[in-house]
Write a protein that binds this DNA or RNA. Structure first.
Lengths: 211, 211
DNA sequence: TAGATTGTTAATCGATTAACAATC
DNA sequence: TAGATTGTTAATCGATTAACAATC
């Protein structure tokens, strides 16, 4: 992995978007792209894209552009995608089972290795390749399956407790779909994926348009 | 609605979080809260919270704090939540049907009024109170149901086209679950809710921890 | 009045943009 | 060499933080 100063958080958040843009170019057989072309695909300005990429080191060629395959590899490397990430989904209701069936997980090396639920009617049922484990066994399952990332698809009331148990079981990365702010130690990374927050932000903008 | 300068985008994005914190206080029967208490619940600093709230006008009482019910009302007002928002979900696969069944929608005045899908096996089936309409009828359905917000739960390949049709049908707010950057006119607001992006950001941080 | 806490100002920090020298 | 495009620097902008006067 390239050395250098830390990559700004705002840039990190855009790297996956660049990676996707590169993926679609690669699929179309495009070998080289300029910052202008890439930026267009990614929905950012060319200056911003070049600045972001510069944090990963110097991987373009002046006068030519970026080699698509090479840049894909560099971004994937910076994001830590050259390894397997083992994911547990906690809460196998509507949303949880949709996530369990989501193909996008495996595409980038994220492997769902465990499903957990509190409901005894759901525990033991099969979803895809996996059998749902009991929430009571969370600690054992996380250890056995060497889970790195926890996805919370439980009701709001249960989210903090499940989060605490995941953290105690050494999971340091959590994707939270429950509409609550999780309180965690500073070494734990929580990303929120909160539908109702997003809708409310949309409402704000929509309401300003037609007053 | 209170007049004043525009609310910074970063503040807007936190208002829903404050609203949720206030909701849980209200439910517990708490009538008043200080910026310190609210900030703790929302996972931000007290200074930031006060600054954010100051954009909505002056709704606290020095020496006392904020009236929970009043502040709820003010924030909801600023976000445009004192009206009904009519939502169409396009794409009724795993994710789309999970979203259709998601209770969190209705809680804040977001009413799902239409489900659309391209698959003729799905069209005509009932999900909750709604019957799935054909994607071909998108324009008619959007008009009849007076849809304000479109939720895209279609495959990546279909997302841009559906987006274009929604925009042409006068939908100006789009929540996009598909892993693509949508190209839209500047008067259209797109929020992305992209699972794989979030996982990749988590991977970045996790990878830095254990090198 | 004394204690508490807001609302706001000023200082700091980080992110974006514009411009261009370096260089393929 | 001439044209194109990166990588970086400096200027600008916006967001966060700290501090405190205003005021309940």
């Amino acid at each position: 992995m390239p050395a250098g100063r830390p990559i700004p958080e705002a840039s990190v958040a855009r790297l996956p978007v660049y990676l996707r843009a590169l993926g679609s170019l690669a699929q179309r057989g495009v070998a080289t792209a300029s910052s202008e072309e890439l930026a267009q695909l990614a929905g950012v300005t060319a200056a911003k894209l070049r600045k972001d990429l510069s944090y990963l080191g110097s991987h373009g060629t002046r006068g030519v552009g970026y080699d698509v395959a090479l840049l894909q590899d560099r971004i994937a490397g910076s994001l830590g995608l050259n390894r397997e990430w083992r994911v547990a989904i906690v809460g196998v209701g509507n949303l949880g089972s949709a996530l369990a069936g989501y193909a996008g997980f495996s595409e980038r090396g994220f492997q769902v290795v465990a499903l957990l639920d509190v409901d005894s009617h759901v525990v033991g049922t099969r979803i895809g390749e996996l059998v749902v484990d009991a929430l009571a066994d969370l600690e054992a399952v996380v250890a056995e399956q060497r889970v790195h990332i926890g996805v919370l698809a439980v009701p709001a009331e249960a989210a903090q407790e499940v989060c605490d148990r995941l953290v105690a079981a050494n999971v340091r990365s959590i994707l939270n779909f429950a509409p609550v702010v999780l309180q965690v130690a500073p070494d734990v990374t929580v990303r929120k994926a909160d539908l109702s927050t997003e809708l409310q932000i949309l409402a704000f903008h929509a309401d300003k348009e037609k007053p």
